[in-house]
Design a binder for these strands. Sequence first.
RNA 1: GUGGAUGUAGCUCAGUUGGUUAGAGUACCAGAUUGUGGCUCUGGGGGUCGUGGGUUCAAAUCCCAUCAUCCACCCCA
Length: 422
Amino acid sequence: MQIKAPRGTYDILPEEAVKWQWMEQIMKETAARFGYQEIRTPVFEHTELFQRGVGESTDIVTKEMYTFHDKSQRSLTLRPEGTASCTRALIEHSLYNGTLPIKWFYAGPMFRYDRPQTGRYRQFHQFGVEAFGSRSPFLDAEVLFLLVEILQGMGLSEYELHLNSVGCPLCREQYRQKLIDHMAPVKDKLCKDCQVRYLQNPLRVLDCKEATCHQAIINYPTLIDNLCDDCRTHYGMVQQTLKDNGIEFVHDNNLVRGLDYYTNTAFEVHIPGIGAQSAVGGGGRYDGLVESIGGPSLPGIGFALGMERLLLAVDKLGCVSRAQQTVDVFLAVMQENLENQAASLLYKLRQQGLSADKDYNQRSGRAQMKLADKLGAKYVILLGEDEIKGNFVTVRDMKSKEQWKIDNEGLIPFLHECLDNR
RNA sequence: GUGGAUGUAGCUCAGUUGGUUAGAGUACCAGAUUGUGGCUCUGGGGGUCGUGGGUUCAAAUCCCAUCAUCCACCCCA
């Protein structure tokens, strides 16, 4: 049987890779403008990091991790997300002793064992940012501003930003109890999944899509009405800052993020029309995370964007124009016995900073011209017996069809001048 | 993990109630133009019909299994 890319993985071929470069460029440039620096962490970590960092009860840890043992029987896991690794690096290098906040961005592959569908892969890519060491609501706003700036930079203005606050451990625990009390009398009416959620993580009943569940718990107490004073004030300032700066969002009582580490601000960005997996990004504040994986008490906030979903949206909404990669000069060789000289000339052109290419399959002169055309060559250099004898080359402008005989010595300056004048 | 749809050339797809050598468009290569591109014309290569079993005189076609893709659920990016 022919070997294919494993389930849920795929190749990014050159044509597609151009789009990735374009997208990464926007992301990195925007993050830099906001004062975020790149960090690169390993793609695998000790399994324990994710168990503690992401949360034992999450779907990611319970059923989606690529976990394996290396030859020394260490349990390692391909990273399912980026925040845990960043936090580990922060602690490992004691960076919390330095200037705060620390503002990082990263981009790279993540791995989750899940059933593939449009916009969902087993190896997928995220761009994310993390800011450690400040609880300021203005930092929350900055992170959201950065997120929106990236979307707009990609020409994606049709997004929906959902916002909520999941409170701090203190007020959330009180709220949790209140919610359980509210649901207790009607728990039999909940769907199967929600029966389990009711016991393990009652907040997640709120974002169940079953209409019957929503009806059963109608008039439920909301998170926002049960925040403590500090959390309420914090959330209010985040919202106000966004409003003051014209960033549209909707407060969403049902938004409860799946990862255990979130506190206070939680958010999700959706782009309608790219399939069922419409969440292109999500994030929030995680003030307890650093401590929970062995560091000092240090607050943090971040988000992650799904890169293939963003490209899906870009393709769907068709708002990019990307130039085809072309070559400045194509070298057409008219006699086989001139290959040595052709190779030297080609190398020389490239050393002089020109993009140049030639045929390697003994094509006829005509076929070489066709190839030059296909590669988008601006100029073709013809090299044949006449040229060699006369110490010159023939240069053809592919657009105007003009041709000149140029001295060997004058060739490079001539080409540079031609290209500069285009 | 659950349910549904679909797998024929690199790509997009035809292929009749099971019947002889599986087709088209496009892409690729060559020639017309032996040293000159886009257009046109002519020719050519390329398929174990996803894979493995079964039914049949005969299977791309019917049955089973398996793998993969897509859609939805779950969940998330």
